[in-house]
Nucleic acid binder design. Sequence first.
DNA 1: TTGTAAGCGTTATCAA
DNA 2: TTGATAACGCTTACAA
Lengths: 362, 362
Amino acid sequence: MDRAKRVLRSEGRAARISDVATAAGVSTATVSRALAFPDRVSEATRLRVLEAVRELNYTPNEAARALRVGATRMILVISPYLYSGAFFNGVINGLDAELASAGYTMIVGSVDGPIEKARRLVDLVYSRQLDGVVVLTGVDPVVEGRSLLDAEIPIVSICSPMSKPSVPAVLIDDEECARKQFRHLFALGHRRFVYLSGADQHYSEIVRYRGVRKEARASGLGEADVIRLAGLYTLESGAEAGRRYLQLADRPTGIVCASDEMAIGFIKTVSEAGLRVPRDLSVVGFDGIPFTRYYEPSLTTIVQPQAALGARGAEALLTLIRDPLALPTPRIGLRGELRIGGSTGPAPPAAVHRQRQALLSS
Amino acid sequence: MDRAKRVLRSEGRAARISDVATAAGVSTATVSRALAFPDRVSEATRLRVLEAVRELNYTPNEAARALRVGATRMILVISPYLYSGAFFNGVINGLDAELASAGYTMIVGSVDGPIEKARRLVDLVYSRQLDGVVVLTGVDPVVEGRSLLDAEIPIVSICSPMSKPSVPAVLIDDEECARKQFRHLFALGHRRFVYLSGADQHYSEIVRYRGVRKEARASGLGEADVIRLAGLYTLESGAEAGRRYLQLADRPTGIVCASDEMAIGFIKTVSEAGLRVPRDLSVVGFDGIPFTRYYEPSLTTIVQPQAALGARGAEALLTLIRDPLALPTPRIGLRGELRIGGSTGPAPPAAVHRQRQALLSS
DNA sequence: TTGTAAGCGTTATCAA
DNA sequence: TTGATAACGCTTACAA
């Protein structure tokens, strides 16, 4: 056994299964079995094999195994932007925990930026290098006519359904959450609103905006009482929306945001202009990222179950991988909850509001 | 060619190189060449091959290629915590941009949590599934006596050197940055300090703390003028340090933090207790994460070149992969810069400070 | 310029 | 319980 070790070292190559087999005095088949199915091998053999494995510092070559078995134990997660956004970090952490405990490794890719990046991801999928795909927020990169959805690979979606209804999706009750945002402000006396939107066309954007409008109508408000400002979920787009808000002739006092980051960017801008939150206006965020607890004021927001979104998505995917034919639950519903912080308060009396507005404009 | 396509579809399997070869009427070797070295085949052949590739929707099987070539075009990035911390997100984005443009795919793993996760990463490295490794903040998982450093794989480190000096490292001037943090406060008149630390034993922690103490000594202060509060870089550990700060009998007015998140957590806690920043105390962060611009007050901080740290690390690694024997630059130095925000200001006059302190304690 | 064929390191079938 | 052996799909000498 020692001689085998010296040979390897002198040749400067890693041990392979045949080295272990030689060292243990068995065949490669037996080594493979001893590792994969310890109980299908005699006690004595198993011990000798394991000893040789340890001695030679043997780790099976994954490429060879993947080629042979046709599975890689790798999962691709497609995120809208790479590592931006504390919210997706939370979801991805949930995914990773679940996937890792099942023995899977996760690759996170984004399709923002140059088309090259998207092409690589699509190639990765089509080259059978992946056992499954998780899609966040419904992104479906189509490169040269190839879509992930045609790749015959297990796939689940989180935060948005896919265009192909058979793809399982883990969703929260976006519409109801948006209504909760609105109701909270309405109950505080706010009667005119800004809806600070997410990216156009996004599933959650469409559903949440609908929720806000429905709730506004149900509360007896008209179309003009909810002003939609376009945002992109980011800090900067929230700050930019704040600037547009400041230019409004008669400013609403209830601000419903599609993300926490936008809420924070928005508050920053209007604070610098001299407005005070929640004295002059109230802001509700969406997501429940860790920063919301530490912002000044702390943010009233919808807390999404980030880890659970990831974990349930991982579960659904693993189910699909283990039995690709079993019909999976097409929709998994989770719920967001309103957490009240310091960024919302009673609407200022109309007279006071008008007066302050006049003061600030001057 | 159409027949080949129908056969594949009926068999429900992906096209392989031999299918393309048959369809194009050439050998598999020619297909391989047409794809990898287009100029080593004739124009006509190339066109026929590419047409067959398109027709059959062929993507080379990466596992087979990896097995044959002994390279996977995958890079492992080991991060201290998975997807926490806006700072590492910035570094990882820099890495990804550079690696992706060189045709590499990135896997991000963390070694926090159960030992199982670390074992998987180490196995991944030893199973030759990776072409290189990037280590953030010097983490070196050792599982069952195997260290990454013994794996004979190209490896570079970012934000910290490794114990093995031959490993290239991309570093910033931590000591000088810490001195800048201190000098800024000292110039504003602060004479007693809190140093809110990072994780014990961390390279950057050791170096930065040394910088602060050196600068304090150079400024004529004594040991007792810098109080070290232990932190862990996180929002929560900053908030916790704030609580300990509030219990100090005589509270320093200059707060030097080892991360932005701690600075924010700290400010939140002391603000809630009635202190005002920067009127009563000044706080300097470290990292320059996006939130620092949107916090209220905006944070004075050391801006680390996050994307550049990642990009230079990726470059160094790619160099090492392409020529493992070339002696790489062992140290790559980048610089952080002080960005002044609203969280620092003139130290309050001693009398005022004492008076306010007495008021608050009551 | 093209084709033949060996071999990368596994696992799984089949026979002993 | 074990061993011999045939794939898995690709790349690359080497030969033609």
